[in-house]
Amino acid sequence: MRHFRAGATVAPATLERLMHAAHQAPSVGLMQPWRFLRITDAGLRRRIAALVEEERLATAQALGERASEFLRLKVEGVSECAELWVAALAPDDGTLFGRRTMPREMAISSLACAVQNLWLAARVEQLGLGWVSLFDPLALKAALGLPDGAEPLALICLGPVDTFYPEPMLQQVGWRQPRGAEQVFFENCWGSVAAAQDEGTVSAAPPSSMD
């Protein structure tokens, strides 16, 4: 979600349930590499919003001929959302189990599981959530005073919304169309359509409209 109800709040008991849900996520080797920072300082939120705006303009420039189209999109809700959290990777604790060959990838995947848990729990609570990645990680790390080895990966906009999108917003505004299931589910080798789909038992489900 990018559109939030300005001035809304989230009850402490609800926040407690959301935190619990995020922390119950699975992780490779039980490493639990996620750290969540709840941003309650108004000045810090403004600094973060400025970093997001800086990256929004840089992204528009990089998009070339689609720049003006991109700038018309609502891409984040950092200033309006009831709750702003930062999801960050903790400094590597040396966990080897399950990540010897892909140490960074498995840490990121584990953090993403925690964000997904939070996302689903938020929807149960009838709260919108949006994952914002428009920021320079080094600049955000400095603004937050993160320790060496820690890395911010997501700004989480969370809070009440007037309505949920009937379909992903980028699809709704014509920015991009989702891929069908036949383009992502294969059998045995890349590009080979899954047998279940050949038999008509797998259909292209509509994409999530949570974001």
Rank of each mutant, 00 (worst) to 15 (best):
L73V: 01
E69W: 10
V75Q: 14
A62C: 00
E83L: 15
S79C: 11
V86L: 09
K74R: 14
F70H: 15
A82S: 12
K74F: 03
A67M: 03
Q61W: 07
C81E: 12
E80V: 11
F70M: 12
G64R: 00
A67N: 06
G77R: 05
E80Q: 15
A58Y: 09
V75I: 07
L57A: 11
G77L: 02
A62E: 10
E76L: 01
F70Y: 15
S79W: 10
L71T: 13
A87M: 01
E80C: 08
L63Y: 00
E80A: 15
S68Y: 02
K74Y: 07
A60R: 02
L71V: 09
K74D: 14
A67E: 13
A87I: 01
A60V: 03
L84P: 13
V78K: 04
E83H: 04
S79F: 08
V86Y: 01
L71A: 08
R72A: 15
L71Y: 11
A87N: 01
A60I: 06
E65D: 10
G77N: 06
T59Q: 05
E76W: 05
S68Q: 15
L57C: 07
S68E: 14
A67C: 10
T59F: 03
E65I: 06
G64S: 03
R72Y: 03
A62F: 02
W85D: 07
Q61F: 01
F70K: 05
V86T: 01
V86N: 02
L73K: 08
R66M: 10
E83V: 15
G77C: 02
L63S: 09
W85E: 09
R66V: 02
A62S: 14
W85Y: 04
C81D: 09
R72L: 06
S68H: 09
L73Q: 12
G77Y: 02
A82F: 14
A67I: 07
V86S: 03
V86F: 02
A87S: 00
A58P: 00
A60T: 06
V75W: 09
E83C: 08
L71D: 13
Q61T: 07
A58V: 05
L57I: 09
E69S: 14
L57R: 13
S68W: 03
V86K: 03
Q61R: 12
A87Q: 00
L71N: 08
G77Q: 04
E83M: 14
A67F: 05
L71G: 13
E80M: 12
Q61Y: 03
K74C: 09
E80T: 12
